[in-house]
Design a protein around this nucleic acid. Structure first.
Length: 823
RNA sequence: GCCGGAGUGGCGGAAUUGGCAGACGCACAGGACUUAAAAUCCUGCGAUCCUUACCGAUCGUACCGGUUCGAUCCCGGUCUCCGGCACCA
């Protein structure tokens, strides 16, 4: 071994060894307890960034540690490889997305390997490879067969100039972000997955996820947005259909003074009978079409409405109330129509003010500060019922129940639950995604491709213009096909799937990644699932994690997953910042992992990232901090290098011979304990590493003693290498071999600590008078409370401090402090 | 607006169950080694005050208050920052 810490040589050497010996290959083993560590797989952009390094370093420490603890660890990696950037590259550089993506995967795989991560590369998947998306298509067909995938016409954002559908995020102030043409709403047929069918279970089962951050669970709860209320039917004057509304406040029914329909509501056309009104309504609709959903639903947008000329009848009061259409009512929530209660809903209040509609309070706050006859804003809190006929005088909370019961008895309404969660629009007019394996036949309608014909391959003969519908429509070979049902002429769906589908089941595919007979073998998913620890960015808190949970529940129902929830524990790692801001090209504060690895080595990069901040917090990049990490590793290297001859041939068993021995043994065992606990339960890598640094400092001190205990020193060095190895594996392998061991530290057992050795003979005790520290004294450790108190009171300093005062109370905390309350 | 989370030295952070605030590291300062530099090693490093110095005193975990023998930790209020949702009836 070289006297210098030549990280580059060392890292290459051990990466080669791990690779050639297939050290990280895993298979099912019923004699061992399994542990599945998963990090969110990356999009293969071609360049690794610090966020990846952080994510994968965290996972690697966990995987390596648990392997050393004797667990059978599954730790896979793959590529979320479909997506728009590949298509943009195709348009810009005239390179096929497939070639571009494969090149990026190759480059990124090399970069990941440079980090020395303990992946079983034999399980690698890429969502864009036909052997993966074949099963994506199979899954889609399972959804379709169960009635959970369907095609529906719905208004979407359409840019007339680019001739393409736009995502809401691509619409800026009602205009296309690329060509600035006014975006229109267009009714298009799109594929949806019926995730709303699972809304209740997705909500309820969040309670099973004790190992998830509350923040993420709260975000999912809000996203699913369950609200309980009632559906109420209103009759319309001179109209044969009734108007249904959803409300969470049936107690305010007596306060309804108008009704509002969403502008797209199917009744709108029939309800506006007068020609004059029809014109105004048409003009209003035209104007709204130029607004995106984002603006339509913005609270800053002024409420605007049009009277239809019709009246509904309030079922409680029998009074006429005018029916409006207005921009603040959404078609796809509830029934697309609402009852207006200006006195008790702020939005209705503003609308009523603007159009001079009556405001009738029905809930009395019994608060002198609220003037019910002259409200300045809607009163939304609880109170006592007024102006509500026979319901007057009860609390509005009771009225919710009573009025709903009344409605149900009269056949005017029912209790209902509504979710903000909408069905998942999954079709995309893009090339680089999984083809939706459906065909349209004039006689049979939408028919799935036969399973034996899967995969439906992405055609090669397409043009990338960036315009029009899906590029698949330009393929001559793709569209025309035989109907799988009747054998007649059918045409293929040309839309592809949202890439979020591909990433909703990859964790299951990893359990049996190379299976060509089925998506995965149930026995294998039974063994490995659920994922014990999932690690990734908090930006996936809602979409990815919700979709993955949805898919897993679907498989669970099919018997293809053994668990109701796929990820038992979730760690959301914080962002990597430089100068207080997220690293980004435009800010020019990007630190390239490759350069850091070149300059200091992967071990240093890993060490810095793990040491500088706890994993779920933000991490501020510091060049001098990286140098500090490098210095530490050099120090460890030097330590072992210098001590090699000293500890060579020493016994594996030591006896404590001096107080210095005792102290080193104390620090050693404390360090092992601390690292074991920090890795085992909290993932506080920073404090674990700080314990290791303390150990290194102590060994340095110890080795300069005149008498040294070689066996003890040998044990300390061995343990040091082992407990550091999950963090910085390359240097540890090197040092492990240097002091005469064989094989890999990865297969070594995690060192045990001696609980007795983690206690010193004497402990420093803080002496407090009235809660303020006055002195510190040494007392034998582990004294029972009574002895501890007696010993502490015997001390001269205590006596002096207490002399001449009244001791009111003494509070002894053994091994910590004693507080003497005096007067 | 609503829902979360956070606020500790010059900086990143530690204090695991209400028990010695500032572990570990970075930066900085002084010293040793060196012809010199780098590297390495040693020492100091919250603020204010007292003192020639030693010793010591007071304050200090965003701010105000409370509970407690004792509060970074628990409770009430305020401020600031970050994140999510945002006309969901």
């Amino acid at each position: 071994m070289d006297q210098q810490y030549k990280f580059s040589q060392i890292e290459k050497k051990w990466q080669k060894y791990w690779n050639e010996e297939k050290i990280f290959k895993t298979s099912e083993d019923n004699n061992k307890e399994k542990y599945y560590v998963l990090e969110m797989f990356p999009y293969p952009s071609g360049k690794l960034h610090m966020g990846h390094v952080r994510n994968y370093s965290i996972g690697d420490v966990i995987a390596r540690y648990l392997t050393m603890r004797g667990k059978n660890v599954l730790h896979p990696m793959g590529w979320d490889a479909f997506g728009l950037p590949a298509e943009n590259a195709a348009i810009k550089n005239d390179i096929h997305p497939d070639i571009w993506t494969r090149k990026n995967i190759k480059e990124m795989r090399e970069q990941l390997k440079m980090l020395g991560l303990s992946y079983d590369w034999d399980r690698e998947v890429a969502t864009c490879y036909p052997d993966y998306y074949k099963w994506m298509q199979w899954i889609f067909i399972q959804f379709f067969n169960k009635g959970l995938a369907y095609k529906k016409k719905n208004p979407v954002n359409w840019c007339p100039s680019c001739q393409t559908v736009l995502a809401n995020e691509q619409v800026v102030d009602g205009f296309c972000e690329r060509c600035h043409a006014a975006v229109e709403k267009k009714d298009l047929e799109q594929w949806y997955l019926r995730i709303t069918e699972y809304a209740d279970r997705l909500l309820d089962d969040l309670d099973l996820l004790a190992g998830w951050p509350d923040k993420v669970k709260t975000m999912q709860r809000n996203w699913i947005g369950k609200s309980e209320g009632a559906e109420v039917e209103f009759t319309i004057e001179g109209f044969d259909k009734t108007l249904k509304v959803f409300t969470t406040r049936p107690d305010t029914l007596f306060g309804v003074t108008y009704m509002v329909l969403a502008p797209e509501h199917p009744y709108v056309n029939e309800l506006t009978r007068e020609d004059e009104k029809k014109e105004i309504v048409a003009e209003f609709l035209e104007r709204l079409q130029h607004l995106s959903d984002i603006e339509r639903t913005s609270t800053t947008l002024e409420k605007e409405g049009i009277f239809t000329g019709r009246y509904a009848i309030n079922p409680m009061t029998g009074k006429d109330v005018p029916i409006y259409i207005a921009n603040y009512v959404l078609l796809d929530y509830g029934t697309g129509a609402i009852m207006g209660v200006p006195a008790h809903d702020q939005r209705d209040f503003e609308f009523a003010r603007k159009y001079s509609l009556p405001i009738i309070p029905v809930v009395d706050p019994k608060d002198p500060n609220v003037d019910l006859l002259n409200l300045k804003e809607a009163f939304v809190a609880e109170g006592e019922m007024i102006n509500s006929g026979s319901f007057n005088g009860i609390s509005n909370r009771d009225a919710i129940k009573r009025i709903t019961e009344y409605l149900e008895k009269k056949g005017l309404g029912t209790t209902t639950v509504n979710f903000r969660l909408r069905d998942w629009l999954i079709s995309r007019q893009r090339y680089w995604g999984t083809p939706i394996p459906m065909l349209y036949c004039e006689t049979c309608g939408w028919v799935p491709e036969k399973i034996e014909n899967l995969p439906v391959l992405l055609p090669a003969d397409v043009e990338f213009t960036g315009k029009g519908e899906s590029p698949l429509t330009t393929s001559k070979s793709f569209i025309k096909a035989q109907c799988p049902q009747c054998g007649g002429i059918a045409h293929r769906e040309t839309d592809t799937m949202d890439t979020f589908l591909d990433s909703s089941w990859y964790f299951l595919r990893y359990t049996d990644a190379k299976n060509i007979e089925e998506a995965w073998d149930k026995e294998k998913s039974d063994y490995w699932m659920p994922v014990d620890q999932y690690i990734g960015g908090v930006e996936h808190a809602i979409l990815h994690l919700l979709y993955a949970r949805f898919f897993n529940k679907f498989f669970f129902d099919m018997g293809y997953s053994p668990c109701a929830e796929p990820f038992s524990n979730l760690l959301t790692q914080g962002m990597v910042l430089k100068n207080g801001a997220k690293m980004s090209k435009s800010k020019g504060n990007v630190v390239s992992p490759e350069e850091i690895i070149k300059k200091y080595g992967a071990d240093t990069a890993r060490l810095f990232i793990l040491f500088a901040s706890p994993p779920e917090k933000e991490l501020e990049w510091s060049d001098t901090g990286v140098e500090g990490s490098f210095r530490f590793l050099s120090r460890v290297y030097r330590l072992v290098f210098e001590l090699k001859d000293e500890i060579e041939g020493a016994s594996d068993n030591f006896t404590i011979e001096s107080s210095r021995d005792k102290e080193l043994n104390y620090v050693l065992n404390t360090a092992i304990k601390k690292v074991t606990e920090d890795l085992g339960s909290r993932f506080n890598f920073n404090t674990a590493l700080s314990a290791i640094m303390i150990l290194v400092n102590e060994i340095y001190k110890y080795k300069s003693e005149t008498v040294i205990n070689k066996a003890l020193l040998r044990c300390a060095i061995k343990s040091l290498i082992l407990i550091l190895s999950p963090f910085t594996p390359h240097i540890c392998e090197e040092l492990w071999h240097y002091i005469g061991n064989r094989g890999t530290v990865y297969h070594e057992e995690w060192p045990l600590y001696d609980e007795d050795a983690t206690v010193r003979d004497e402990t420093e005790i803080a002496v407090q008078i009235n809660g303020k520290v006055k002195d510190r004294i040494m007392l034998a450790s582990g004294l029972p409370e009574a002895d501890f108190l007696a010993e502490a009171m015997k001390n001269d300093i205590v006596k002096a401090l207490v002399d001449g005062k009244n001791v009111i109370k003494t509070i002894p905390v053994p091994d910590k402090l004693i507080n003497i309350v005096i007067k």
